[in-house]
Design a protein around this nucleic acid. Structure first.
Length: 750
DNA sequence: AGCACGCCGACT
DNA sequence: GTCGGCGTGCTC
């Protein structure tokens, strides 16, 4: 008997066995047709052994799981002599291209690597409803070549419209012609219009690599030569394109894409971007360069478009796909190049469900296809720089283009020597610089990565700190809305008059600065100045963001107080001063990557100041000026900063010189989660080259009503960390609703 | 992930 | 006396 192992897109532990019926004719052929209603006959007719005879791995099939019929993918087919357990039959095979072999290998690899079930990973591959069905057909109208019918002005208008815009639906044609739908229907009946079936999901236009790109600067041209030589070697060729904002990284990888499409017109290219960077402006750049709109894949893509993109990708007809991290799981059959733009961005890390790092999986995905991979960033991750330094990745450096922004002079303000007034946050030196800038009619950007007015409200009478009811986080005061808000869960309440704990009236005080409080302070310092706030509260929609950015660009704002939303991607010609209000904020918390992230953010913020003709200045306020982050930042010496970081990490065996994983344990209450941790702690497999720390209380110790603990695991390079974690979890039988989630290569240590 | 079975509160 | 809440357990 033939047996098929079928993987279902759900978190089952493995593929399940089914029998492949090799009967001649209809599997259900015994039923007399006369007794079966017509609709069912049609459904049953599909279920013949016809498609099952040649069943092969990758085929999409339907089979019963439990008592519902589900879609699955054939993982293997083999012949078995004796089958002791009766198997359910494979019901039918879908008429669609098989899931490519490389996609299946990728699913298996990812599942093992991130310690998820293969079915859960397959579910990420099959995230396009109905993409396996043929494209829906709609009925569209064309003017008939020749027909005799009574002519009226309305009918002539319809015919003219149909000739100008062939292929519209009845309703659209009526609207376009400016007549009622009845006229169109009448004309169809009279023979003046013919109805044709049209596929609703149209293929993507092929990109045209022969179009002339922009003229490249000598630096860009040199970079293109290096990339071209490297990709020309063929096979898996990782490349880091490392260049400041405005150095033209995009043009460089555009040339790589054009080269590839000229050599292999059938090649498929995946360009990954952080979700928020997938703007219409970016898509338009691709369209302008290649004369065709790329396929897009991100959260906001509606179901119908998702279905179209998925189907075009599996058929190999979508050439350039521009997507967020989940686009990695699209069923490319002929993927030849993967670009990960802004590769350092933390948005590549998926933190829910199947936890993975999109950047790292992209590199593996390219490797599996023997494809090129380009990582691009103005502030590459330390891991990536280390790969470049060791020669695993080719390293292409792009200097700033002449005429582009000049990096500003960066000065530290030692807050110990130059403190702000009591209850204020801006030091006299920064204030003086702002006054001078305002007098010159130039702009200032103050950066503070804290929304709202104050990050903490506490009671002076009893010391109570106001916390969010469903998480162990402090409530942030938003003074403009008069509410206390939890930034983690979205919970909010009006600011109470009395302390909810001891009921003392008027004892609540706001502690620490947020952007709203800084803006208030600026209004006192610079009376009459136009002060605005840029945060997710004031720019909650793209339109609001565009309006604020527009005002800043046009010089209608004197001082912009912004969170990290203000840190990247804008060009403010009149901005000459950047003040970093609390540069130490990002360094607290003992996070492994704190220094790196602070560096990256500060250099982006500082890079906002000063454009072509006006030199800029950045003032960075810190209580800890001896921290090497700041010395290197002041000298704008990235290499020495990263060399220092790398030495520290190497000494401790931290990534990329060792590897990390976390085990997040959660349960209904503290006693339950402690019990689960005790069980897990007793079951740690003995392995050389692995250290297990914890369990520790995470910064967010209660999330969505679940109490949490966290084990951190450090492994030497060359140790199979995934296998260790999976074994550890599998050998522990947790009680009740306790859960243990594995996070391989954790990025955040909250 | 579904969908079942299985034990404790507000209704005809 | 039932209908139904969602807590755990199984699916080849």
């Amino acid at each position: 008997m033939r047996r098929a192992r079928i993987l279902f897109p759900m978190p089952l532990p493995e593929a399940f066995d089914y029998e492949v019926p090799d009967l001649e004719g209809d599997l259900f052929g015994d039923a007399p047709l006369g007794d079966v209603p017509l609709g069912e006959v049609r459904a049953e007719n599909r279920r013949t052994s016809e498609g099952l005879a040649a069943l092969a791995p990758g085929d999409f099939v339907r089979a019963e799981l439990g008592r519902t019929e589900r879609l699955g993918v054939v993982w293997s087919v083999d012949q078995v002599a004796g089958q002791n357990r009766p198997l359910k039959p494979v019901l039918d095979r879908l008429d669609a291209p098989p899931l490519p072999e490389v996609s299946r290998r990728f699913v298996t690899w990812v599942a093992r690597y991130v310690c998820a079930s293969p079915g859960a990973v397959l579910r990420m591959v099959l995230r396009a409803p109905d993409a396996l069905e043929p494209s829906p057909v709609s009925h569209v109208l064309h003017a008939a070549d020749e027909a005799v019918f009574k002519s009226t002005p309305a009918r002539e208008a319809v015919l003219a419209a149909a000739r100008a815009r062939p292929g519209l639906s009845q309703a659209d044609l009526a609207r376009f012609a400016g007549v009622s739908a009845g006229v169109v229907a009448g004309l169809v009946k009279a023979g003046g219009l013919v109805t044709r079936a049209a596929m609703r999901d149209l293929p993507f236009e092929a990109p045209d690599p022969s179009r002339q790109g922009p003229t490249l600067s000598p630096d860009q041209a040199a970079a293109v030569r290096v990339v071209r030589a490297k990709l020309g070697e063929g096979g898996f060729t990782p490349i880091l394109i490392d260049g400041v904002t405005g150095s033209g990284k995009t043009e460089v990888y555009f040339e790589a894409i054009a080269d590839l499409l000229r050599a292999e017109p059938e090649a498929q290219i995946l360009v990954l971007l952080p979700e928020i960077a997938l703007t219409e402006a970016v898509i338009a750049r691709f369209e302008a360069r290649f004369g065709a709109r790329p396929a897009g894949w991100h959260t906001d893509v509606p179901d119908a478009e998702r279905r179209r993109v998925w189907r075009e990708v599996i058929h190999g007809r979508a050439r350039i796909v521009l997507g967020a991290r989940s686009a990695l799981f699209l069923p490319f059959a002929n993927l030849r190049l993967v670009v990960v733009d802004e590769e350092h961005d933390t948005a590549y890390k998926q933190e829910e469900g199947v936890i993975y790092n999109g950047r790292d999986l992209a590199v593996m995905r390219a490797k599996m296809s023997g494809a090129g991979v380009i990582l691009a960033s103005a502030t590459p991750a330390l891991e990536t720089l280390e790969n470049a330094r060791s020669g695993r990745y080719a390293h292409v450096r792009l200097a700033a283009r002449p005429g582009a922004a000049v990096m500003p002079e960066i000065d530290l303000i030692d807050l110990r020597a130059d403190p702000p007034d009591e209850g204020r946050w801006l030091s006299p030196r920064l204030i003086a610089a702002m006054q001078q800038t305002y007098k010159n009619a130039d702009q200032t950007l103050l950066y503070l990565n804290r929304r709202g007015f104050a990050p903490l409200v506490l009671c002076r009478a009893c010391g109570e700190k106001l916390k969010s009811p469903h998480a162990e986080t402090w409530l942030t005061e938003h003074r403009y809305s008069g509410r206390l808000v939890c930034h983690l869960t979205g919970y909010s309440m009006p600011r109470p008059a009395a302390c909810p704990h001891c009921h003392a009236e008027g004892a609540l005080v706001s502690v620490g600065p947020g952007v709203e409080r800084i803006a208030d302070e600026v209004r006192v310092i610079l009376p009459g100045a136009r002060v605005e706030i840029l945060s997710s509260d004031t720019a909650s929609t793209p339109a609001m963001l565009r309006a604020l950015i527009g005002d800043m660009e046009a010089g209608r704002i004197d001082v912009l107080v912004g969170t990290q939303m203000a840190a990247k991607g804008h060009n403010f010609p009149h901005l000459t001063l950047v003040g970093v209000v609390d540069a130490d904020a990002g360094l607290k918390g003992g996070d492994l990557r704190a220094g790196e992230r602070t560096w990256s953010l500060l250099s982006q913020v500082a890079g906002r100041a000063g454009r072509a003709e006006q030199p800029g200045r950045a003032l960075v306020q810190t209580w800890d000026p001896d921290n090497p982050v700041f010395a290197a930042l002041k000298d704008q010496d990235r290499d020495s900063f990263f060399a220092l970081e790398a030495d520290q990490r190497a000494a401790l065996g931290q990534p990329p010189f060792g590897r990390l994983a976390a085990l997040i344990v959660s349960a209904a209450g503290d006693p339950e989660v402690d019990a689960a941790c005790a069980l897990l702690g007793a079951a740690i497999p003995k392995t050389d080259g692995i250290d297990v720390f914890g369990p520790a209380l995470p910064q967010i110790s209660v999330l969505r009503g679940r109490h949490r603990r966290r084990f951190l695991v450090r492994a030497d390079r060359g140790v199979d960390l995934s296998a260790f974690m999976a074994t550890w979890r599998a050998r522990t039988r947790l009680k009740g609703a306790a859960r243990a989630v594995i996070d391989i290569d954790p990025q955040s240590f909250l």
